[in-house]
Structure formats: structure tokens, C-alpha cells
């Protein structure tokens, strides 16, 4: 695999795994409750942010 894509998948693979583990712990300990509108908004915002960074870095690697 091209070094640029290996780096990309390594970072977003491990980074997303850590991110998801944190979200799981936050849900499990009820630090956030998805039945609350406010918490739900933050939850989806965080996921959207991660996907956006991934999309920008991915597109950038692709264009170059």
C-alpha cells in the first residue's frame, strides 16, 4: 500500500477506535444520555467532526 494511505488508515483506524471506545465509556457510565436533546446534539456533532476531518484528509491525500 502507498505510504500515504497506510498512514491515513493507521491514524484514522486507531484514532477512530480510541474515539469510539471513549464514546462507549461515556454512554455506559451515563456521562451522556442520548434521550436528552442537548447530549444527543453533542454526540452527533462529535461524530460529524471526526468524519469531516477524515473526509478532508482523505480527499487531500487523493488529490495530491
Amino acid at each position: 500500500m502507498d505510504d500515504r494511505w497506510f498512514t491515513f488508515f493507521y491514524q484514522y483506524g486507531i484514532g477512530s477506535a480510541i474515539f469510539c471506545a471513549l464514546m462507549f465509556l461515556l454512554l455506559k457510565t451515563k456521562a451522556i444520555k442520548l434521550k436528552r436533546t442537548y447530549d444527543r446534539r453533542i454526540f452527533y456533532l462529535l461524530i460529524a467532526g471526526l468524519v469531516s476531518f477524515m473526509f478532508i484528509h482523505g480527499t487531500w491525500s487523493l488529490i495530491v
Partner: peptide, 17 residues
Amino acid sequence: YTNDWYMLPIFILAWLP
């Protein structure tokens, strides 16, 4: 400068509150 998002949940949903 663009790799802080992974750990963001812990700050905004746990440590800050």
C-alpha cells in the same frame, strides 16, 4: 494542529464538566 479530535470527547463530556 489538526489531530486533536480523537480525544475531544473526554474533555468536553467528562473532564470539563
